[in-house]
Amino acid sequence: MIQYLGKRMGRSLLTLVVIVTLVFILLRLMPIEGYFENYEKLTEEQIQVGLREMGLTDPMPVQILHFYQQLLHGDLGMSRRYRSNVAVVEILKKKIPISVRLGSLSILLSLCVGLPLGTWMAGHKGKWPDKLGTVFIVFIQAVPAVVYYLFIQLYGTTLLGVPLLFDEGNIRCWILPVFSMSLGNIAYYGMWLRRYMVDESTKDYVKLATAKGVPKSRIMRNHIFRNAFVPLVQYLPTSFLNTVIGSIYIESLYSIPGMGGLLVDVIKKNDNNMVQAIVLLYATVGVIGLLLGDILMTIVDPRISFGKKGGVR
């Protein structure tokens, strides 16, 4: 297991290098106009000087080498067009905590609501709780988020008596963004947990337990839930990442200075250093998440194994 994990980690590192290098090369394919604030009014000389300053006139391998040299020193470079001449680290340092806080709160809320919802629905399959839950899930899935987010903001703020825009100091301002962000995840967890639990409940071991006279609530909790939760566990770390990236709507609606729209912004602005840094960050979180998901899965379900020799084939 440990040996396997070691190897797996090594490979993850390799994956990271491949991703970052790939993105690095892709970014160099973008039109050079994007590098300048006002390309139209620049002279050819200014453009050349600018490109040279950015090290873009070097051959590609040299550029990549430079980039990794810098990276090893923990230097992610300077932002150019997003905020000219400000260290990328400085920018990210301010934005990450807000997004992490929002993201964690929203994931926590969605687990707290989504899992009981799924269990409840599966336990009463075909009866009114199931139908009620389905209506909710269907609604969330059906109505585009951009639409109901706006409605929540418009009427929620009046209801709570808070300003339309986010204010970090005012804790009541956190309620609506966190609530809006978790709605999608609640529906996701509820829906899939119900699906898996319904699938599990026809299994033989459930029949056996029922025959042995185990109470239904205990079967649901100890047998079905644990088995049904396995596929969801793996999704947890990724869902956190997706929540942070996906908060673009919420952040732009409420003026929350987080990471949500940052990637779209900096790609559109050709701010290579920023894009690279964010991609590196997201990819790292993603790779770790994947690894974590797999480990979690082996912990929750002992039948699944990754070791080369041990375990069933």
């Binding site: 269990t119 709570l160 804790i171 009541r172």
Partner: peptide, 29 residues
């Protein structure tokens, strides 16, 4: 499990309620 989850929800709800109770009253003046 269900009970734990329920209590968690309650906690969150209570916290939210408390927080909303003590939120500042400043608004666009």
């Amino acid at each position: 499990m269900k009970k734990n989850v329920l209590s968690l929800i309650l906690c969150v709800a209570m916290a939210a309620g408390m927080l909303s109770g003590c939120g500042s009253t400043q608004s666009g003046s």
